[in-house]
């Protein structure tokens, strides 16, 4: 069953405004992680009325499983069309699971410069963390089993569904 994300985005928008107010500094720059994270980032940028463009990251070159599975065949260019030095960054992804993607994204961001701070915002936190990483802004928190997966579809309309996948036997 496909779920709409309007309410999740409403909630994220509200939390973002609180974080931005608390920062009290210049407006943050938005960076989305390919592919779903970019969709969520675009939707939030529009809601928050921030000027574009957003930055996009493809973390394929920073993955920790490269030596096991090789390079993702459809790796996209990372584009950060602004200087991140001393800026407040809203890092946005669609689903937070093990935390490994965020670890890779943080490493990549620091190769562009030294931001003042980074706030992590995710549409869905599905649990199952393998690294000490937490999101400050969350659209929804789900408690899913290991054989369940959140699939986000987009960009327009943005939606998600929960599917049960076959686990390998070993």
């Amino acid at each position: 069953m496909t779920e709409s994300v309007a309410e999740l985005l409403n909630s994220m928008e509200q939390q973002c405004r609180q974080v931005i107010d608390a920062q009290g500094s210049a407006e943050p720059c938005i960076i989305g992680i390919h592919t779903g994270g970019v969709w969520v980032a675009e939707a939030l940028r529009e809601r928050l009325g921030l000027p574009g463009p957003i930055g996009t990251l493809d973390i394929s070159f920073y993955r920790d499983d490269f030596s096991h599975i090789g390079l993702h065949p459809q790796v996209k260019p990372s584009e950060i069309p602004f200087d991140i030095e001393d800026r407040h960054i809203l890092l946005i992804d669609d689903v937070l699971h093990t935390g490994r993607t965020i670890r890779a994204a943080l490493n990549e961001i620091f190769d562009y410069g030294r931001p003042a701070c980074i706030t992590l915002a995710v549409l869905i936190d599905r649990g199952g963390r393998e690294l000490p990483i937490a999101a400050q802004i969350t659209g929804a928190t789900l408690d899913l089993n290991a054989d369940q997966e959140v699939q986000v579809q987009g960009p327009e309309p943005l939606s998600y569904r929960i599917v049960t996948k076959e686990l390998p036997n070993d």
Binding site: F61, Y62, F66, L71, I80, N107, E108, F110, D111, Y112, G113
Partner: peptide, 9 residues
Amino acid sequence: AKTVKKVPL
């Protein structure tokens, strides 16, 4: 285009 022109691949 990055400041650090390196990836850990």
